[in-house]
Each structure stands twice: as structure tokens, then as C-alpha cells.
């Protein structure tokens, strides 16, 4: 399943997608949990009883701002959450 957390507003589209099929048997011990400097990821058991990660509810409506520190307008380094997730389950839409 592709779970998209975030929103679209007048200023743009801000979704973090998690490919839960790649996430279920995480080979790197949920490195995203500590990889994100703001601790935006958490584990949960989804509706189909699989343990996967999701974006915490409190961050879902604020991604453009909460992710801003990792996205300087120039010379952008690789995103820590994406780097931490070697199975490439995490994608940002912006």
C-alpha cells in the first residue's frame, strides 16, 4: 500500500509517501524513526495488521513548514529520512 501523508493547499502539494510493502520487513531497524531530526515518524499496526511506520498526526497538516529545515532553498542536501530508509519506501512530493 502507498500511504500518502500531507496535504495540498494554494501554495503547493506536500505529501510524504510511504510504500508499506517495503516498510513491513524493515532491514534497517526503522532507521527513519531516528533519522528524522524532528521525529516525525512512528510505528503503528495498520488496518490489515501489518506493523509499518506513519507520519505522526500532529505533523500531517504542517509538512511544508516542519520539513523546511531539511529543504534549504539552494544547495539542498539529501533528505535524512530518505537516506535512512534504504528500502526506498519514503518519498517526498516536493
Amino acid at each position: 500500500m502507498i500511504a500518502n501523508y500531507g496535504y495540498k493547499d494554494g501554495s503547493g502539494e506536500y505529501y510524504i509517501s510511504i510504500d508499506t510493502d517495503k516498510c513491513i520487513d524493515c532491514p534497517v531497524g526503522r532507521a527513519c524513526l531516528t533519522g528524522c531530526p524532528k521525529g516525525m515518524f512512528e510505528t503503528m499496526t495498520d488496518d490489515y495488521d501489518d506493523e509499518v511506520v506513519q507520519i505522526k498526526q500532529s505533523f500531517r497538516r504542517n509538512l511544508a513548514y516542519d520539513c523546511a529545515d531539511c529543504k534549504p532553498s539552494s544547495n539542498r542536501p539529501p533528505l535524512p529520512c530518505v537516506v535512512a530508509c534504504t528500502p526506498a519506501a519514503i518519498k517526498h512530493s516536493w
Binding site: 511544508a64 513548514y65 523546511a68 529545515d69 534549504p72 532553498s73 539552494s74
Partner: peptide
Amino acid sequence: ASRVCAMVRRVG
């Protein structure tokens, strides 16, 4: 202010 500040931090 917090939203504006997040944008400003992107330029430093």
C-alpha cells in the same frame, strides 16, 4: 510568525 519563520530559515 512560525510559518513565515520556517520559510525564512530555508534561505538562512
